[in-house]
Amino acid sequence: MSVITYIIPRTFSNMRGNWLSHLMTALTIAFVVLIFGLSTLIYFNLHRLAENYSREIRIVTYIDPAFFPEDIENLKAKVLKLHGVANIRHVTSQEGYQRLVQQFQDEKDILTGLGEDFLPPTLEIEVTGTMHNLERIRPLVSELTSLPGITDVYYGKEWVERLRQAADFTRLITFAIGGLLLLTTIFVVSNTIKLTIYLRRNELETMRLVGATNFFIRGPFVLEGILQGLMGSGLAMLALFALFEFLKTQVNFPGFIRFFSPIFLPISVVTGIIAGSIILCAVVSAFSMRQFLRV
């Protein structure tokens, strides 16, 4: 009963009376949650990109040019027997050259003076679904490297690893910002509550004298914390979404990620961030009251 008749109206009247302090608190929370959300968004998309790229891994093995066609057939048979190999395609030096010609149609001069057999023959290996993972593909690569006639193996390791490292680094940054969010919220919310307590100390003392329970005294403060968390994090998520939509149309992704389409944080993550901020603010508010709530 008192929640509806007293705590809710009291909370709004307190917030109106001290609106500037509450607005500054909500904006500070919004700023920190925005940075946290941005970092989470970057990590989320880098992780997706790394996953996508891993899924498209193909292995290209370079064959000793001195190998005879029948040796290549033998090699193909050996490779096909290896675990994780789904399909295999032999690309001759001439085929490789023709691909280059097609790729450099506008800059044919680059290829001037190079013979049609300047590229080594290759085997293009498609791996099975379970191998779309850098850790699983490594044993296959080392087996291929040890086969006689294979001079080199390429599987885009550098790019996948760089993406993974970038994703891991962003995750680290996200955790650090999460920590910053925690500390800032604790500091800002507890100071706002303490300031409000100081301004209303006579009122709170009177409430204790007339028999108000701790729940009754604490209620409006905890509700203020909840509303601050909701407003701050809600505002941050709206700003993040607007920023994301703006950047999506402005940024041209380079080369290999040209076809990657970044997506916004899933609704579960957005809800989690908002819920986390609300809980954090409510807990900080409740704890800030503790020292006041003596008998």
């Binding site: 006579n202 009122e203 009177t206 004298l209 007339v210 028999g211 108000a212």
Partner: peptide, 20 residues
């Protein structure tokens, strides 16, 4: 020990409000 930002009515009513 009256609360400055509450009216006379609200000050007196507080004793009853805390009782629900």
């Amino acid at each position: 020990k009256l609360i400055e930002n509450l009216t006379v009515f609200e000050n007196v009513a507080l004793s009853m409000e805390v009782c629900g």
